[in-house]
Nucleic acid binder design. Structure first.
Length: 589
DNA sequence: GTTGTCACTTAGGAGGCGTCTT
DNA sequence: AAGACGCCTCCTAAGTGACAAC
């Protein structure tokens, strides 16, 4: 507390605010104090959930208005040309633009689309257009394809002009003033209208996402700021001054009825601080995780069913980094589950499998309908408990019928202040990265080999967290190309070696250097090939951005003399600026 | 407990864009 | 100059979890 106060005194220009003690902060402030450089993330914290004192911005950028099709682009119904009213035409173009996508062949998508499209039709259109199968959007589709080609074929000057206009928009609307800083806004453009594309088997796919107007928009800014102006002739739904929240703009979306927000970029103070807090929470878990593990193992034996279920669920969350698994409204979203919402049908128990005892086979769809498939040997006691939980149940029954995320989180809260289910994912991801880096990195390796080690450590985390991706469409091709390069390089090396052998004594040294250089290049290519192959179906980005304490990576770079640019690109460096400044080579998560 | 609301983080895919190759 | 390729940015959906009201 005292340290924080001193920092504030050192930055007298800042308005005063009540400080919140944050253990992690002390660790960082000490070194920077020595240099008297006040970093923005050392500034005052507010208490009572106050997020800012001053907030000024220009409001959102709306989607461009609909431009009617030229009259030569026709729509046909049952083979006959039909001129659509502007409202119906706009919605038709949304469908036409997706014609090449698999979505438009799906029954649910077509049904939802047609139902919503009809709502935009005039009564005359409504009575004529009764069958989507008789609608011919092909001219529209061709027209948009041609437009897209034309855009690609634009001259340099035309492209530059568009770029400059985008830049102007960014400069005008892409920043806000929050307290003493100009901050980048993440998503200052309002989502344009279109057809809803849910992930997986979504019951609402194809529904019309309606156009957002100024009248739908709530503005949040400070009273003493210059309020954003609505477009001429329009009004905001509301202007409010709520400094307990971080958003600048909000509106209610019509598919799920949920609220959408415009918020700040990850590089902003408010997001960076939150991110830091998240990792500090995970580090607190590290200190007491042994105790918690001992506790849930004990609870496997409880005479109360609800406690056993809680303990087994927590074991899964800890061991397998499963998500909490909130309940979802049936029929409103795709059928996906997390830990607490697992159903009997998602597990198969094997007394013995591939020479291992007590194996649990998981097979379910998680967030974004990504499949989780895993065969895990578990303790006998867990296995017996699972048998008990599954006894006399139907496949579609809840595995943990006495548990939900709220109960689980209440329990976790008692074990450690601020602990929730998702902290385990952060903790296990970060600790895994640190361990893997320690195991895999050899100081004798050259830079590419070290980076391969880093990526492998990152990969271990991505596998743990089940971060998958569809293999890139060009994957096979790109592997082939790389192999061709490797073969060529091998050839080149062989040549160089031959030359070395036959070279005269005075040329040997030079020839040798040449071979060395080629060898290095070859090695680099081979490392690249290995990395790419191993990464075929794994997405590293999500864990890097959301689960791995960036200070671990920064420290690793410092320790092994790797430039930070090799690990984090520009955006990532901006997001993790706090960590890049904070972490020394001996940082330990 | 249960339900609903709200705020915020986490997620994969599409497509743009810059660079390298031909 | 054109085309291929791979990385990065944008987009927005889909989660988590706090909290209030009943």
């Amino acid at each position: 507390m005292l340290m924080l106060w001193i920092t504030n005194v050192l930055v007298p220009a800042l308005c005063t605010a009540v400080l919140v003690a944050c253990v992690g902060m002390l660790v960082y402030i000490l070194p920077s104090l020595c240099f008297f450089i006040p970093f923005r993330w050392e500034e005052e914290r507010y208490t009572d959930g106050v997020k800012w004192k001053f907030l000024e911005h220009k409001g959102p950028v709306f989607a461009p208005p609909y431009e009617p099709l030229p009259s030569n682009v026709k729509f046909y119904y049952d083979g006959k040309h039909m001129k659509l009213s502007p409202g119906a035409e706009e919605v038709a173009t949304f469908f036409a633009k997706m014609l090449d996508h698999e979505y438009t062949t799906k029954d649910v998508f077509r049904k939802n689309f047609f139902k919503d499209w009809r709502k935009e039709m005039t009564s005359e259109e409504k009575s004529k257009l009764t069958d989507l199968n008789k609608c011919d959007f092909s001219e529209m589709s061709e027209y948009f394809k041609a437009q897209s080609e034309a855009r690609k074929a634009m001259t340099k000057e035309e492209k530059l002009k568009i770029k400059e206009e985008n830049e102007r928009l960014l400069q005008e609307y892409g920043f806000c003033i929050m307290d003493n800083h100009k901050e980048r806004i993440a998503n200052f453009r309002i989502e344009p209208p279109g057809l809803f594309r849910g992930r997986g088997d979504h019951p609402k796919m194809g529904m019309l996402k309606r156009r957002i107007r100024p009248e739908d928009i709530i503005i949040n800014c400070s009273k003493d700021s210059k309020y954003p102006k609505p477009p001429p002739g329009t009004k905001w739904k509301e202007v409010r001054h709520d400094n307990k929240v971080t958003w600048l703009v909000s509106w209610t979306e019509n598919i799920q009825g949920s609220i959408k927000y415009i918020m700040l970029n990850p590089s902003s103070r408010i997001k960076g601080e939150k991110d830091w807090q998240k990792y500090e929470m995970a580090r607190r878990l590290k200190k007491c995780v042994d105790r918690i593990r001992a506790q849930y193992r004990e609870d496997w034996k409880s005479k109360e069913m609800r406690i056993r279920q809680r303990a087994v669920a927590l074991y899964f969350i800890d061991k397998l980094a499963l998500r909490a698994g909130n309940e979802k409204e049936e029929g409103e979203t795709a059928d996906t589950v997390g830990c607490c919402s697992l159903r009997v049908e998602h597990l198969t128990l094997h007394q013995e499998m591939d020479g291992q005892e007590y194996v649990v086979e998981f097979d379910f769809l998680g967030k974004d309908s990504i499949r989780y498939y895993n065969k895990v040997p578990v303790e006998k006691r867990v296995f017996k408990n699972l048998q008990l939980f599954m006894e006399d149940k139907e496949p579609e029954d809840d595995l943990f019928d006495r548990l939900n995320t709220s109960i689980l989180n209440k329990h976790l809260q008692e074990l450690m202040d601020g602990l929730t289910a998702k902290v385990f994912r952060t903790y296990n991801a970060s600790i895994t990265l640190q361990q893997q880096l320690n195991e895999l990195t050899s100081s004798e390796d050259n830079v590419p080999a070290k980076i391969l080690s880093y990526n492998r450590a990152n990969r271990a985390v991505a596998i743990l967290c089940n971060h998958q991706r569809a293999p890139p469409k060009t994957f096979e091709k790109s592997m082939q190309n790389l192999q061709t390069k490797i073969d060529a390089k091998k050839e080149q090396l062989a040549d160089a070696k031959r030359e070395l052998k036959s070279a005269k004594a005075d040329a040997k040294v030079r020839r040798d250097e040449k071979s060395k250089k080629i060898e290095e290049q070859l090695m680099k290519l081979e490392v690249q090939a290995t990395d790419r192959e191993e990464n075929k179906q794994i997405a590293l980005g999500t864990s890097k951005l959301n689960y791995l304490d960036p200070r671990i990576s920064v420290a690793w770079c410092k320790k092994f003399g790797i430039p930070i640019e090799k690990i984090y690109n520009k955006t990532q460096r901006e997001k993790f600026a706090w960590a890049i400044d904070m972490a020394e080579k001996d940082y330990e998560f």
